[in-house]
Amino acid sequence: MERKTPGMLGRARAVGLNKRADRRVGEAVIGTLLLLCALVSVVTTVAVVYSIAEETFQFFREVSVVEFFTSRVWTPLFENQNFGIAPLVLGTLMVTSIACVIGLPLGLGAAIYLAEFAGDRTRRTVTPILEVLAGIPTVALGYFALLFVTPVIRDLIPGVNLFNPLSAGFVMAFLILPTVTSISVDSLRAVPRSLREAGYGLGASKFELITRVVVPAALSGIIASFILAISRAIGETMIVTLASGGRPNFTFDPRQEMATMTAFIVQAGTGDQAAGSLGARSLYAVAAVLFTITLVLNILSQQVVRRFSEKYE
């Protein structure tokens, strides 16, 4: 956009319109510093991937990938080492499923209430409470699960172990509820008024309007919130470490103690395995699986959100 005319620099200098070297350098230095700040996030990503990949690679030089994914026994910290991640994945799936079965419908229900039925005052009271719920440290939720929910569940259902995925899943349901609710409320409220008016104009009752017009229109946002909540449940650590226990158990009985991937990472990371030992490396292999799953879910939810935002803007 700028042109160069011979002699113009001299004339520009004469009237003081020329570029000042000190100012240009100053601005460039600041711009570079700011860019470096932004690049920290790239470095973080590289570091995350590198730290997981390096040790995982070492791990798989000694352990066969086939065994890792097919064996049903996981005892890397014992004398007799077995490396089948299945029990950990099953434990994670069990807790996540319980959390989702309870948390997703509750979250969506709360979202529908807040977006469609609640008055201004209710909304202004409930929303901060949900924020508080989302902000409770997970160690406090784990304490609650282990020392309040588990005894209650053990009173109600016979044969439940002290550590069990039931109470962990139950409490985790309320951890993911605010995630589901806040994103779903946004997407429900983003449904254009014209669409609602069209629905009412066609004689729909409020119930019909919500179930047949508003929720379907906001579906991609709701699904995105579900995916995000699942991802959060899978990556959640403290509740499961405290309430679901640390023994990898290949079982479909939710009354039994089951270790999740994250619980194992804590167990192995806080134990006293020598760095570089196979037991210590198994931690990184599990982390690789965990990271991949959550990354895929996050990207998936972003894709869904992008489709949804294109629709109405």
């Binding site: 990503t45 995350v48 997981i52 995000l228 899978i234 990556g235 959640e236 990371g269 990271f291 959550t294």
Partner: peptide, 17 residues
Amino acid sequence: RNLAGVPSIVYGILGLY
């Protein structure tokens, strides 16, 4: 955006390593 969704335990592994 993706970093914001990485489970916190993974940051622990980054820190450890």
